[in-house]
């Protein structure tokens, strides 16, 4: 019975993932705003921040916090620039040289384009619900698993894009990202992948 149940789950997961992949294949550009809620032990209260995200397939990404502090990064292929509005500094990076930025950027890109191969290589994926689709991912990479217990990803019921991400850490800290105003295949303004001037 247990074997049959696992097999059924796997089939369901495959179907869901293929649907998500098919939907993502239609996406040339993706832009959205987001609100981030962080519950960290080292802060007295929940940290609220907001920002926006831009993606142009296959590998251009802008991730930007607009409040309470301006910071973020743009990535084009392997190369990127990150900035910090507090220190008024910009810094070039390469995802192949900076492993931390590499993991972060690849993670965001993988979700934007629903890169199933990459995700399967890095996480054990489990489907929690199908309507809406909620996946639970447990890191395989020991470096990542050291920090993250699991990630819950919720997809929009209608449009098959990621609407909510919850990252739970072993320490009990958590981070939730809620995406809104999601627009796919809209035109992207020229210079959208240029870092801000200080």
């Amino acid at each position: 019975m247990v074997t049959m149940s696992v097999a059924a789950d796997n089939n369901e997961l495959e179907v869901v993932l293929e649907q998500l992949k098919a939907a993502a294949a239609e996406v040339e550009t993706l832009q959205s705003t987001f609100v981030q809620e962080k519950n960290l032990e080292m802060f007295e209260q929940q940290l609220l921040s907001s920002g926006r995200m831009l993606y142009v397939q296959p590998d251009q990404l802008r991730w930007e916090l607009l409040s309470p502090v301006a910071s973020g990064f743009v990535l084009q292929g392997d190369q990127g620039v990150r900035w910090n509005g507090v220190s008024q500094q910009r810094q070039r990076f390469s995802i192949s040289v900076d492993p931390l930025m590499g993991v972060v950027a690849q993670q965001l890109l993988a979700w934007a384009r629903v890169d199933l191969d990459w995700l399967r290589a890095r996480y054990h994926i489990k489907i929690l619900t199908t309507e809406p689709v909620v996946l639970e991912l447990t890191p395989i990479d020991p470096g990542e698993a050291e920090f993250i217990a699991h990630i819950q990803v919720t997809f929009d019921l209608v449009q098959d894009y990621v609407s909510d991400v919850l990252v739970l850490e072993h320490s009990g800290d958590s981070t939730r990202l809620r995406f809104g105003d999601v627009r796919s295949n809209d035109s992207i303004a020229p210079g959208a992948f240029e870092p801000p001037e200080f």
Partner: peptide, 8 residues
């Protein structure tokens, strides 16, 4: 704070 708010 700025760094903590970033994905990394």
């Amino acid at each position: 704070l700025s760094e903590l708010l970033q994905p990394q």
